[in-house]
Design a protein around this nucleic acid. Structure first.
Lengths: 336, 336
DNA sequence: GGCCACATTGGAAGCGCTTCCAAGATTATA
DNA sequence: TATAATCTTGGAAGCGCTTCCAATGTGGCC
């Protein structure tokens, strides 16, 4: 049988309360007693039962995270950042994925709540009213991640997808493009992609360039990107730039252009979003938006920790910024 | 305040034990009582506290998973599969990553054990002796995933990396290649990649083709694949095929060949491993090994569930198989 | 009608910990 | 040295649930 706190107490000839105090780093334990307790813990190979602690202390040391899908490295990286940071603080992550469905998201959050997590991380800033209410009522700190909003449930750590989309369009405009089509992933609509597109639309208005019918692809896949090229050609109007909502779409588009012998960026400039590893390796390399998601995750972890230690968070909204990386897929066309 | 079981009991005019029985689907509760309890649960919006249940029942309903890194979609997909399956059964996943470091893996497992998971999923079949001992001593069911072994800690769900590597080499041989170099990722050595390489070596021996010095790249990245091409050229011997340990390396190699104007598969055939989405989209499309990782995960979840319901598992070793997908990167060279 | 087997139920004990309170030990102060 | 203030400490209560045991109720059977 595993040793329990009473065994340690008996072995060290102290009360259970004292062992608990040693374990939790309370300062009012004499050096001598502490040493004896630590020795006993060592000898008995005692490992505290965190389930029991969770019940007694009403703190589980667990944080619940909900992402749309783990398979996309973007989300996985954020989770990795959060885990890395929190692990150092003895906190464990419980994970679920919603498949981009807000109703599923709500269900998962309800289910997680029964496990009494100390805090929640959820992806994005769009959630059903029920979700917002459940989370608010629970009184648990919540960090939303991956975008910005003025009305977070509690806190938000992200970057402005709107502004990034807007700046990309401006970049294309500066490079001489006037016929820019936006490619969005229709099947996995979410606030991040929606805001990127809104940024594009805002820029079009600012620049007074005609906003082309955007090409909606069925899925956020390489195939979707290829299909977008086909749809663009079918538009029957001149298009000189494709602003894709994700790198996956953009890479799919580049590869399709390779197959169709469309010169990139000569005939068609292409931009992505995410700076996946493939973005810098593909020929031509892809202009895109880079977000350091591991550090976004770590940052979210930090905020989570502050919130649950009761510390006041300096700001409800943490902007980790983004960086536009210009590469070959949008280089100005030589000799024009 | 949240309702607790005693509140429900009082409201339904029954004992707490009866409510518990209703909650846990015990059959010895009269229809009438059950209905009354359910009504009270509904009315009070009672949600059981799973932490307390975990302590009392000595079952937490949590399964711990340890992967090398979440950022690689392969692992994320397995996790997604496990989660999907287990969620339906009210089980939640606790997740950690080891960064391909067996010592870190041990630490994480120790830390997780304090949370009393009902079972463990861990990636791969290579673990430190300490890890194996800790897990054995804990008496918790363990599923190792992603490879096969005759000596699992408990159970294993995977496929034969050895056999896949071996068959790939045979395929290249059938297509007329005799100078095959294996590219492995040196920095993240793990049993899966090691076994793929061993399969290659076994095939070389069987086919009596000279085994070239394998090119070791520093990292499992696109850059690593590009570098492998450089190293291969520096070998100063004829090489007509590159058998890469992962799709990432293979794609990196294809892109480097594009830059260096090496015809694939004309001058050099290339194979990968994993069947990432990019494998079928890239030009030329990549011959690789496909594993349905989501269903591997679901399968692992099923075994986990069987193990912890005490059910006898038909076999300690579950082989989910793999599939070699031949694409353009190894098509026989025309006219020879 | 009496007895037994079985179904149903209430309630106490206990899961392993934290935390509060009160008591005892120690130190500072006069 | 006496007293107050402060540090340590043990131990009980309690976190919200499950589960066991005993008690009650129910019906069948002779």
């Amino acid at each position: 049988m595993r040793a329990k706190i009473a065994d340690v107490a008996r072995h060290a000839r102290v009360g259970a309360g004292t062992v608990s105090r040693v374990l939790n780093g309370a300062k009012n334990v004499s050096r001598h007693t502490r040493a004896r307790v630590l020795a006993s813990i060592d000898e008995l190979e005692y490992v505290p039962n965190l389930v029991a602690r969770g019940l007694a202390a009403n703190r589980t040391g667990i944080i619940a995270a909900v992402v749309p899908a783990l398979g996309y490295s973007q989300h996985a990286e954020v989770i990795q950042g959060i885990t890395e940071f929190l692990h150092e603080h003895g906190i464990t992550l419980m994970i679920g994925h919603s498949g981009y469905d807000l109703e599923v998201e709500r269900e998962i959050i309800s289910a997680f709540l029964a496990r009494r997590p100390d805090a929640f991380y959820i992806t994005g800033v769009d959630h059903s009213e029920a979700t917002r209410r459940i989370l608010r009522d629970s009184g648990v700190p919540v960090v939303e991640g991956g975008n910005l909003t003025d009305t977070p449930i509690d806190c938000v750590v992200g970057y402005s997808n709107f502004e990034a989309g807007r700046q990309l369009t401006h970049l294309l405009h500066e490079r001489g493009h006037r016929h820019i089509v936006h490619v969005n992933n229709g099947s996995e609509v979410n606030d991040r992609n929606r805001d990127r597109q809104r940024g594009y639309e805002a820029a079009c208005a600012e620049l007074k360039i005609a906003k082309k019918k955007r090409v909606i692809t069925g899925t956020n896949t390489l195939d979707g990107g290829a299909q977008a090229v086909a749809e663009m050609l079918a538009l029957g109007r001149p298009v000189d730039a494709l602003q894709c909502g994700t790198d996956v779409l953009a890479v799919g588009a580049i590869l399709e252009c390779q197959r169709r012998d469309i010169a990139v960026p000569g005939q068609l400039a292409i931009t992505g979003f995410d700076d996946l590893p493939i973005a810098s390796a593909i020929v031509p390399s892809l202009t895109t938006v880079k977000i350091d998601r591991i550090s976004l995750g770590r940052r979210a972890g930090r905020v989570l920790l502050q919130r649950l230690s009761g510390e006041m968070v300096p700001s409800k909204v943490v902007d980790v910024g983004f960086q536009i990386v210009e590469r070959a897929s949008t280089k100005p066309r030589a000799g024009r």
